[in-house]
Design a binder for these strands. Structure first.
Length: 574
RNA sequence: CGGGGCGUAGCGCAGCCUGGUAGCGCGCUUGGUUCGGGACUAAGAGGUCCCGGGUUCAAAUCCCGGCGCCCCGACCA
C-alpha cells in the first residue's frame, strides 16, 4: 500500500478528551475517530489491526474445533423474555421497536440466539459437543464508556458458546478454551495472566478472565508471588483463620458513650483498642431484604463476596433511613447485638467474616446513636447466620492457596473471559437433547468472549514509547514501512523496486511515497508504529545500500540492495 | 442518576470577568527557495462562536432553557 493513497490522518496533538495512552495514540495515529460517546469509526489502519487480531483468534478457535457463525445483531424481545433477561438487563440493553411497534434489542451478548438455534437444530448427544463462535459488533449502553476502545458502547467482540451432554465434556472443553485463549494472546504478542473471576450477572459456576497487566486497566487482580494462584480482586482470598468452634458463656457486654464517633479509627482511638477488635457492621440493601456484613475493623469488606454469599441479584449500601429503621440509630452506630430480624423492606440476613470469629473482647456499635458496646463476644452476644470469607484482600496478605506466598495486587485490562454456564439458559429456553438412554436433558453450556478492540487498545498500552505505538509484529497493520528520505530520481527508483520486491514476497508493506521531508515521514512512521522501516536515501543509494531500522529499539543496520528482500522476509516471519 | 468541567476553523487553544461583530499555533491551498529527523518565505482558503429563547441600539461575551462531550462516583459478558 502506498501511504499517499491511504487515509492516515495523524495528529500532532491528541484531542483533549483522550485520557489514557492507548486512546491518545489510536487517535493521533489515525486508527479511530469518535462519532458519539463510546461509538467509533474504525479508519483503514485501525481496521487492519482489528482484522489481524480477528484472524489470529479465528485460526486458533478453528484449530480447537470451534465453528464460526454469524448471528443477527437485532434480536426479537421474545427470546430475551424467555430467559427473563428482557426484564433484568436494565438500561444497558438498547431496546428498539420496528415499524409495527414490535420490541427488539441490539444484542449485547447472544446466549439466547445461539441457544435458540441449537435447540432447533441439535437433538442428539451424538452431535455434541459443539462450540459456535462469531466475531461481530455488540452494543451495550454502558453507564460510563471511557478510554476509547477500552470501554466502548459499540464494540467488536468474539463471542463463543459451547454445548455439551455432560459436565465432564464441559470441563474438558473449558480447559481447552483456556489454553486456546492463552495461545491467542501470546500470538498477538501480549503478556497476559489468567485469573479466577466472579461469574457476575451472567451466572454460572466457574469463570476465568484473561487480563493484560497495565496501569490503566480497570480491573484489579491479586496474584501470589510464590505459587500460580491469581484471581480478580473481587474473588481473591487470602489465608484466613477459620473453624473456631462456637463459644458459650455469659455476656460481659457494656455500653459506652462515644459521642459523634462513627468510624473504626475514631472509636478505636477513643477507646484505646486495636482495630482488629472492632466489629465493623455494614448494612446493605438487596432484592427483597437487608443484608448485614460483619468484619474485623482492620479489614475491608468485599461486596462481591457478600453478594454471592447471600445469592442476591443486586446489593448496594443501605441509605441512612434504612439503617435507622434497622438499628434505631444514626449511621455509624450499627452493631450485630440485638439487631432486628425483619424490617419493612424484608428479612435481615447477617453474614460474618471469619476475622471476627476469634474476637473475644469486641467493640461494636450499640444500635443507639452515640453509643458503642465493649466486651462483645460472637456466638454469645449475637449469632450470625453464617461465617465465611468476606475479606477484600490487600497487597502483602498471605496467599490463600500456598504456604509461603504473599499476594501482590496489580491493575489489568480484561481482554478475554470464559464461563461455565451450566444449564441456566438451556433450562429456561427448554433447549434439550436426547441422551444415550433416550431421556431429554438440557444442554450444558459454556460461554467464551474476547474483546477485539480492547485487545488492540491493550496491545498499545503494553507497547508504546514517547514517539508512538510499537506494534507487536503479528498484529501490526503493516510489517514493514519503506521510507524514501528524499525525492531524488535514484532514491525513488530504488524505493519502488524494493516495494515491488517485498510485495512479491507476500510481505505486508506500507510505502511512504509522499513528497514530504524525511523528518515528517519518520515522525509519522514512529507514531503509527510499523515494526520495521526500510529507509532509502541518496547517500545509501550511491553505495547500493539502504538502512533497516527497528521501531522497537531504534537499531539501524545497513543492507545491500540485493539482501533487502531476504532479510526483511526473515524478520517478518512469525 | 449525583458532583465537577468544557463546547470558538481539521487539531490544540486565547478572547467571555469589564458586551462594540473573532484571533493565535499547528494543519490545509498556491508560488518561490529548500530537502537524510516535524524547513523558510509570500499570498490565500476555512468559523451557524453547540442549539433555542431572552436582555440590549449592539451578545462568542450577560440571563434562562436544552443538547453534546470529558472527568470523579454508583454500574459492568
Amino acid at each position: 500500500m502506498r501511504y499517499s493513497q491511504m487515509l492516515i490522518p495523524t495528529l500532532r496533538e491528541a484531542p483533549s478528551d483522550a485520557e489514557v495512552v492507548s486512546h491518545k495514540l489510536m487517535i493521533r495515529a489515525g486508527l479511530i475517530r469518535q462519532l458519539a460517546r463510546g461509538i467509533y469509526d474504525y479508519l483503514p489502519l485501525g481496521l487492519k489491526v482489528l482484522r489481524k487480531i480477528e484472524q489470529i483468534t479465528r485460526e486458533e478457535l478453528n484449530r480447537a474445533g470451534c465453528q464460526e457463525v454469524l448471528l443477527p445483531v437485532i434480536i426479537p424481545a421474545e427470546l430475551w423474555q424467555e430467559t427473563g433477561r428482557w426484564g433484568f438487563y436494565g438500561k444497558e440493553l438498547l431496546r428498539l421497536k420496528d415499524r409495527n411497534e414490535r420490541d427488539f434489542c441490539f444484542g449485547p451478548t447472544q446466549e439466547e440466539i445461539i441457544t435458540d438455534l441449537v435447540r432447533r437444530e441439535i437433538r442428539s448427544y451424538k452431535e455434541l459437543p459443539k462450540n459456535f463462535y462469531q466475531i461481530h459488533t455488540k452494543f451495550r449502553d454502558e453507564i460510563r464508556p471511557r478510554f476509547g476502545l477500552m470501554r466502548a458502547r459499540e464494540f467488536i467482540m468474539k463471542d463463543g458458546y459451547s454445548f455439551h451432554a455432560t459436565e465432564k465434556s464441559l470441563n474438558e472443553h473449558y480447559e481447552l478454551m483456556r489454553k486456546t485463549y492463552v495461545r491467542i494472546f501470546e500470538r498477538c504478542g501480549l503478556r497476559t495472566k489468567v485469573v479466577e473471576a466472579d461469574t457476575g450477572a451472567i451466572g454460572g459456576s466457574s469463570s476465568h478472565e484473561v487480563v493484560v497487566l497495565a496501569e490503566t486497566g480497570e480491573s484489579e487482580v491479586a496474584f501470589c508471588d510464590a505459587c500460580d494462584y491469581s484471581a480478580n480482586l473481587e474473588m481473591a482470598s487470602s489465608k484466613t483463620a477459620k473453624g473456631e468452634k462456637k463459644r458459650s458463656g455469659s455476656s460481659k457486654c457494656r455500653e459506652i458513650k462515644t459521642p459523634g464517633l462513627k468510624t473504626v479509627e475514631e472509636v478505636a482511638a477513643f477507646l484505646k483498642v486495636k482495630r482488629a477488635q472492632m466489629i465493623k457492621t455494614l448494612v446493605y440493601l438487596r432484592d427483597g431484604g437487608i443484608v448485614v456484613g460483619l468484619i474485623a475493623g482492620e479489614h475491608e469488606i468485599n461486596e462481591v463476596k457478600l453478594k454471592n454469599a447471600c445469592n442476591a441479584r443486586f446489593l448496594t449500601m443501605a441509605d441512612a433511613a434504612t439503617v435507622k429503621e434497622l438499628t434505631g440509630a444514626e449511621v455509624g452506630f450499627a452493631g450485630p447485638v440485638g439487631l432486628k430480624k425483619k424490617t419493612s423492606l424484608g428479612p435481615v440476613q447477617v453474614f460474618a467474616d471469619f476475622s471476627i470469629q476469634s474476637i473475644d473482647d469486641g467493640v461494636t456499635g450499640a444500635n443507639k446513636t452515640d453509643y458503642h458496646l465493649t466486651g462483645v463476644v460472637p456466638d454469645v452476644d449475637f449469632t450470625p447466620d453464617q461465617y465465611l470469607d468476606l475479606r477484600l484482600v490487600k497487597e502483602g496478605d498471605s496467599c490463600g492457596r500456598c504456604e509461603k506466598g504473599r499476594l501482590q495486587i496489580k491493575r489489568g485490562i480484561e481482554v478475554g473471559h470464559i464461563f461455565k454456564l451450566g444449564t441456566k439458559y438451556s433450562k429456561s429456553m427448554n433447549a434439550m437433547f436426547l441422551d444415550e438412554s433416550g431421556t431429554k436433558q438440557p444442554f450444558i453450556m459454556g460461554t467464551y468472549g474476547i474483546g477485539i478492540g480492547r485487545t488492540a487498545a491493550a496491545a498499545i498500552e503494553q507497547n508504546n514509547d514517547d514517539k508512538g505505538i510499537i506494534w507487536p509484529l503479528p498484529i501490526a497493520p503493516f510489517q514493514v514501512e519503506i521510507i524514501s528520505l528524499n525525492q531524488d530520481d535514484e532514491v525513488i527508483k530504488t524505493a519502488e523496486k524494493i516495494y515491488d520486491e517485498l510485495l512479491a514476497q507476500g510481505i505486508e508493506v506500507l510505502y511512504d511515497d509522499r513528497d514530504e521531508r524525511a523528518g515528517v515521514k519518520l515522525t509519522d512512521a514512529e507514531l503509527i508504529g510499523i515494526p520495521h522501516f526500510v529507509m532509502v536515501g541518496s547517500r545509501g543509494v550511491k553505495d547500493k545500500v539502504v538502512e533497516l531500522k527497528a521501531r522497537k529499539n531504534g537499531d539501524i543496520k545497513k543492507l545491500a540492495f540485493k539482501d533487502v528482500s531476504n532479510v526483511v522476509k526473515k524478520l517478518c516471519q512469525i
